[in-house]
Computed example of a mutant assay.
Amino acid sequence: MNQWEVLEILERERAVQKGHFLLSSGLHSDTYVQCARVLQHPHLAESLADELARGFAGLPVDVVVSPALGGIIIGYMVAMAMRRRMVFAERENGRLALRRGQTLQRGERALIVEDVITTGSSVRELMELVESKGGVTAGLGAIIERGEDRDFGVPKKVLLRLEAPVWEPDACPLCREGLELEAPGSRHLT
């Protein structure tokens, strides 16, 4: 599956939205990708996950780690394709944490799987969490990476690089135009 096929799936499912959006990173954009519109269809989630898993064939991975809420479905499907365990991190007191009895063992090699990477702050936070539990980040997979190709120091597979502008709130031209701001993500900053 190439990036154009991924984009076609996203557009067909109306996952790529235009407007004025507050991203989970706190940045503003005129483009939002609601991956849940695609991942609600198991056959599409499976196709995307299989493609991500193929990108890590031969890489030693013990566990897949994803952030709640957006990364859970794609992380679970990648784990299923790789026949590996999957855990997810949730926000607790503003930081990602493993809850609900989920743990990592010392030395476990974790593949971090995200739906969308915007600034990379959640990825870095997940890498810190894995390390704090004694694990090692073996790689990173995502359906989409917005903007530039970021280096996290581990093997990375991204299905689609999406060029979409982002702005700091005080420099947002859409705010200056008075367009209503929507916050469709699972983590709303104020």
Rank of each mutant, 00 (worst) to 15 (best):
Q3C: 10
W4R: 10
E5S: 13
E8G: 09
I9S: 05
I9D: 07
I9C: 05
E11V: 04
A15C: 08
G19L: 00
F21C: 03
F21P: 03
S25V: 03
S29N: 11
S29I: 13
T31F: 09
R37S: 03
H41L: 10
P42F: 06
A57I: 08
G58M: 12
P60D: 15
V63Y: 02
V64G: 05
V65F: 03
P67W: 07
P67C: 13
L69S: 13
G70Q: 02
G71H: 02
G71L: 13
I72R: 02
Y76G: 04
M77P: 05
A79Q: 05
M80V: 10
M80H: 13
A81W: 01
M82T: 08
R83D: 13
R84G: 04
R84W: 04
R84A: 08
R85I: 14
V87I: 13
A89T: 08
E90I: 00
E92A: 01
G94V: 11
R99D: 01
T103I: 07
T103R: 15
R106D: 15
E108I: 15
L111G: 06
I112R: 00
I117V: 15
I117E: 00
I117N: 01
G120W: 01
R124V: 00
E128H: 10
L129W: 08
G134T: 09
G134P: 11
V136E: 15
T137K: 11
L140Y: 03
G141N: 06
I144G: 04
R146M: 12
R146S: 10
D151E: 12
F152L: 14
G153Y: 03
V154G: 14
P155L: 12
K157P: 09
L159K: 15
R161F: 10
L162Q: 01
E163Q: 14
W167F: 07
W167Y: 07
E168P: 11
E168Q: 11
P169G: 09
A171L: 11
E177D: 06
E177G: 08
E180N: 09
A183K: 13
R187D: 00
L189T: 06
